[in-house]
C-alpha cells in the first residue's frame, strides 16, 4: 500500500528504511476487529482477559468498527447467511489489513460439514493465518498474533496484498 510519498521513490534505500519504520509501528499496534460468532469468541474473551493479556502484544484496542481496525479476527462458524456480512466487514476495513481465521469452523467448516456452514472462510475473503483447534486455546490466539506481526514486519509497504483474490461472493 503506497503511502503516496514513497510511491514516487521506488525501491530505494529510503523506502527500505521507511518499511522498517512503518512496519515496526504497525506490528506493535494492531487494532483487531473481532468478528465473533460462536464458541471461539469466548476463548478470545479469555485471550483478552488479564491472565493471557493480549495487550502485551499491543493488540488490546479491540475495535468493533471495521473502519478503525487493521486485523480481522474471525472467531467462530460462518454460515452462508453470515457470509455476505463477513465480506462487507472485510471490505470496510482500510488497507493494509490482515485476517486471522480462528478455529476449525472458520478454517474448514470444522465438525459442521452440512448445508448451512461455509467450508472455510477463505472461500469468501483472503486469510493470512489460520488457528487450529475447536476452540483454540488463548495461547494459540497469541501465537497467531505473533505470526501476523512477523508477516507485517517482513512485508513491503509498497506491495498490494491479495489483489487477485476471488471468492464465491465476488462477481466474476
Amino acid at each position: 500500500m503506497a503511502l503516496g510519498l514513497e510511491a514516487g521513490l521506488g525501491d530505494s534505500v529510503l523506502t527500505t528504511k521507511l518499511d522498517t519504520l512503518i512496519n515496526w509501528g504497525r506490528q506493535y499496534s494492531l487494532w483487531p476487529m473481532v468478528f465473533g460468532t460462536a464458541c471461539c469468541a469466548i476463548e478470545f474473551m479469555s485471550a483478552a482477559a488479564s491472565q493471557h493479556d493480549i495487550s502485551r502484544f499491543g493488540a488490546e484496542v479491540v475495535r468493533f468498527s471495521p473502519r478503525q481496525a487493521d486485523l480481522l479476527l474471525v472467531c467462530g462458524t460462518i454460515s452462508y447467511k453470515q457470509a455476505p456480512i463477513l465480506k462487507r466487514i472485510y471490505e470496510q476495513m482500510p488497507q493494509p489489513k490482515w485476517v486471522v481465521s480462528m478455529g476449525a469452523c472458520a478454517g474448514s467448516g470444522g465438525m459442521y460439514d452440512n448445508y448451512c456452514t461455509v467450508q472455510g472462510i477463505d472461500s469468501i475473503i483472503p486469510v493470512d493465518c489460520y488457528i487450529s483447534g475447536c476452540p483454540p486455546r488463548p495461547e494459540a490466539v497469541l501465537d497467531a498474533l505473533m505470526n501476523i506481526q512477523e508477516q507485517v514486519r517482513s512485508d513491503s509497504v509498497l506491495r498490494e496484498r491479495h489483489q487477485d483474490f476471488k471468492g464465491i461472493l465476488d462477481t466474476p
Partner: peptide
C-alpha cells in the same frame, strides 16, 4: 436470527 445456524439437528 439464524446467523449461527450450524445444522445441529441434521448433522
Amino acid at each position: 436470527i439464524g446467523y449461527l445456524h450450524r445444522g445441529f439437528e441434521k448433522t
